[in-house]
Each structure stands twice: as C-alpha cells, then as structure tokens.
Design a protein around this nucleic acid. Structure first.
Lengths: 259, 259
DNA sequence: ATTAGTGTTCCACAATATGGAACGATTGTT
DNA sequence: AACAATCGTTCCATATTGTGGAACACTAAT
C-alpha cells in the first residue's frame, strides 16, 4: 500500500504507521508480526521501534511485545482531566460573557447532578453568583437539559424534584422538551431552577461528535427576554462550532493533496 | 546535544522529539518556534511535522499552531475507560481465582461508594455472588480500605454506616486501620461488611505510582482463616507487582547501553 | 541435537532526508 | 500605500542517513 507520494519522509511515515498500529492494537503485537504486516524488513522495523522506544513512545511487556510508552500514557491521563476542558473552553466563555454581558458557565456530567467546572462572571451588579462545584439537577437547568438531550447522561429514575412552580416534573413533558432541544440545537430554562432566572445552553462535542459538556449564558428575566435567549442560543452554537472545527484553510501553496 | 550514538534514525528521533514537545506544551507551539528550539532548519521541521500531520499525530488550530492529532486524542479517550483496566487485569484476576479457589474482584473509586468493575468467580458452591456494579461503602470493604489508605479517595465526612456488629464506625479507629494497611501493603475485612464474609485486597498502581484500583479475594469465614488471608494478601501484592513492573531483562545482545 | 521461532547488529550501498535559498502569504510599521 | 519582518511551504543538488540482506544470539519446543 506504500504512499506513492514522493514525500521524502519514509522513515517517519513507517515509524508512525507502526506506532499507530501499536497503540490501537487490542493485543500487544510482536516485532515479527509488525514487520510482516507492514512489509518492512525485520532489521528496519527493529531500528525504527527502538527509536520510538528510546523516545518513550513505545515500551515492551515481559514478552517483548509492544505497548504504548510512558509519553503516551501520561498524555492520556492528563488529557482526560477537567482542567484540560476548562483551559480549552476558557476563551470561548470569556468571549460569550463579553458579548452578552451575562454570566457564562461550563458544565459536564457529574453523578446524579451536573458539575459546573468553570464560570466567567457577568458585568452587571445583579447577576448569577458563583456556581462552580454547585450541584444542580439536570432537568431544570439549561446545561443539564443539553446533556440529557444528547445522551451525555441517562435520565435518572425516581421523581423529578420541583424546585419552582415552573419546574418540569412530568417525565413525558421532559422527553418532549429534550426532543425540542435536539431540534433547535440549544436548551432554555425560564424560571424552572429559580424564580426570575433564565438561561440558554448548547452542547460541546468531542472530535467524534459525542457530547461531553455544555455551555450556558444565564441572567435575570428582567434583562433577557425569550427573543434574546434564542439569539444567544444561536450565538453559543456558532461560537462553539468555530472553536471546535478548526478551518485553517490550507488551500494555498500545495498543488492539491493527492487524490 | 545531538545523541552522539550512531543510531541511524535521525529523522524519527527528531520527529518524535517534536511530537513530544507538541503534546506536552501548555500552549500550542508554532513551526518557527519549534524549529528554533530544536535547532532544526525550518524546511526540515516543516517536512517532519507534515508527515506527523498526515498520519494524524498532529493537527493545527486556526492559527496554524500545533495540537495533538486525532490518533492521540482518540487513544487518550479510549485509554481512560474502565474497560482498559478490566482487560489489563483480567489475567491476574483469573490467576488469583484459580490459585486460591475463591472469588477475585477489581474495584475503582466511584463517587461516595466504590465501584466494582470486574469479578472472577469462585470454584465453590458457597461463594460470593455477583458484585459488579454493586455499591459498597469504603470503610467496611477490603477493596475500599485500600483505596482510602493510599489516597485514591478522601475519607468522606458524615457518620460511618454500621453494616454489621464488626463494622468500624469510629473515625480514629479507621485511621489507625488505614495506617496498618499501608504498613502491610494489603487490607483485610473480617465480617465488617456481612456476617461470615472475609476478604483481602491490595492496591493496583499507575506507572507513576498513584493507586488507581484495588484487587481482592473474598470468601466465607469457614474456608479462610486469618492465616490464609495474610498469605493471600502477600500473594496478591506479589502478583500485581509481577504484572505491573515489566522486567524484560534486555541484558543481552547490546554492548551495554551508552554511559 | 535439531529446528523454528524470537529480535539485534553489522555493513556496503544508494535511496532518502537534508538544509540553504527562493517564494507566497500575512501581518505590522512608517 | 509601500515596505519590512514573519510566517510556512516547496525546490533541488548534495552526501548524510536510512536501508535491508545476511550473520548472529538467544529461547523454546521437538
């Protein structure tokens, strides 16, 4: 299958191909197997993998079979921490907060109730207090509705707590609401969590499309009419898309990528 | 600088060095910065990184700065799933279960109570039922004591539930017990969770030494005397060490690694 | 002992990676 | 606007670097 392109990086191409195989393999492959599978002479395979090993990208188990190295396992561990998501979404929250003047929040699925992991405050005196680490039920927050709607969490059994007179407590009604969320792409609450409090939220996706978090803008009913909420909802969606899907239009230089 | 060794893998060495920098950098580096920092000509740097990009190990944000690629982020995501730990520990659980004849369990820290994620059953008719997904308090299970003792979870506030007459409900007494666990390297319960049930557990560590899980052997008091529990405790510790620390004595071939 | 299986090292050869220079595209300065 | 300074990509002659066959070392199973 060798890439016919005269790229001038055979060694690196082969090494990365081997590495990819090693880190995706369900069972640790041996040198010989790799050499055969990729049609690279044993000697070369040995040299390439030794290089990867020296750099910590690959290590060996007691049988000499190859496993992902420490550089990669460390990366994996650090990658899956809330802090990474917070860091990645910070600029977005700030931009949303400035643009709307209201409080922006970032939340992920906790257990039982959702976990707010970052917040950028409003400019106004009257605004939302600090919610980080606060426990909020899924069904009466915009952040939570999004996570429910896109399957980031399952709807829990048991009765739905009624926090205000407007809270959704009927299971069927909640499902309809979630369907609506999926349709518009964002969720709204209007006094369902606390009297006089409104919010909009939209989903944050992984590269693979899985929803892993949600971002909201919230404030007092007196400043945010339904019309504003819808506008902001679209704004959040747009901003998230911008941040998530990197364009970097590299349609220059290159004489059009092969095939 | 420049590994004096005549390794014959300059391209791969340089590419991996660049990649390591990219995935550990707190802020996405640009091409020029990398080239300068590693003292590699721009042209070469460009070619190397393009290769990494083509293989999915690196991608660019909207400014052209470099981020870990999809191959790596996917790896990271899959890596931190329970299933990976289960797969890695399966052989160990099986070996322990066969050797002792009793039930082996694997647990990690859940929220509030520990989460049993795998089990290999006993040979006997009288044995432990299926515990996977069962919620068990930390302070009266061997698995939980281990996680507490090694800081995999913090001791929760509030009173300690008394499940049997032997359960530890005194906070100070629990601390003493945990100290003892750290000393011996394994934890024991004797009827503290359920009458007639005993268990031993030992910690499973990450590469960096952090305790992330625990493994236990449990059975009826009638088959497992304290003496047996201590013996099995040492056995678990030993087996885990064997599985965790890969020897692969590569003191052959080589004319003694440099320096 | 013999055979088949690992993986590593050696070394002559030339294919492949190299890096200076030129180029195109952006950005900031006067 | 024109200019200067950066940025990253491509080109291409050069020789450095990677290549792969063969020999070797070690282990395991006949």
């Amino acid at each position: 299958m060798g890439q016919a392109t005269v790229s001038g990086t055979r060694a690196v191409d082969r090494a990365t191909a081997l590495l990819t195989h090693i880190i995706t393999a369900s069972t640790p492959p041996q040198l010989g197997v790799l050499a055969r599978e990729f049609d690279i002479p044993k000697s070369t395979t040995s040299r390439l993998i030794s290089a990867l090993e020296r750099q910590g990208f690959v290590k060996r188990d007691r049988n000499g079979a190859f496993l992902p190295g420490d550089v990669l396992t460390r990366f994996a561990r650090e990658q899956n921490q809330d802090s990474v998501l917070v860091a990645r979404m910070r600029p977005l929250l700030e931009s949303l907060a400035t643009q709307t003047g209201e409080t922006a929040n970032l939340a992920i699925a906790g257990n039982g109730s959702l976990k707010i992991i970052d917040q950028v405050d409003s400019n106004f005196m009257l605004g939302v207090t600090n919610w980080i680490e606060r426990e909020v039920p899924y069904h009466c927050s915009a952040l939570g509705k999004v996570l429910l709607a896109y399957g980031a969490i399952a709807i829990q059994s048991g009765p739905l707590p009624k926090l205000t007179s407007k809270s959704i407590t009927n299971r069927a009604k909640l499902l309809t609401e979630l369907e609506a969320v999926r349709k518009t792409g964002y969720a709204i609450i209007d006094g369902e969590l606390e009297d006089g409090l409104v919010a909009v939220a939209a989903p944050v996706r992984e590269n693979d499309g899985r929803v892993i978090a949600s971002i909201s803008i919230s404030g007092p009913t007196t400043r945010l009419a339904l019309k504003d909420l819808n506008r902001i909802g679209l704004l959040i969606v747009e901003k998230i898309n911008e941040a998530t899907i990197p364009p970097h239009n590299q349609i220059k230089h290159g004489k059009a990528g092969a095939a």
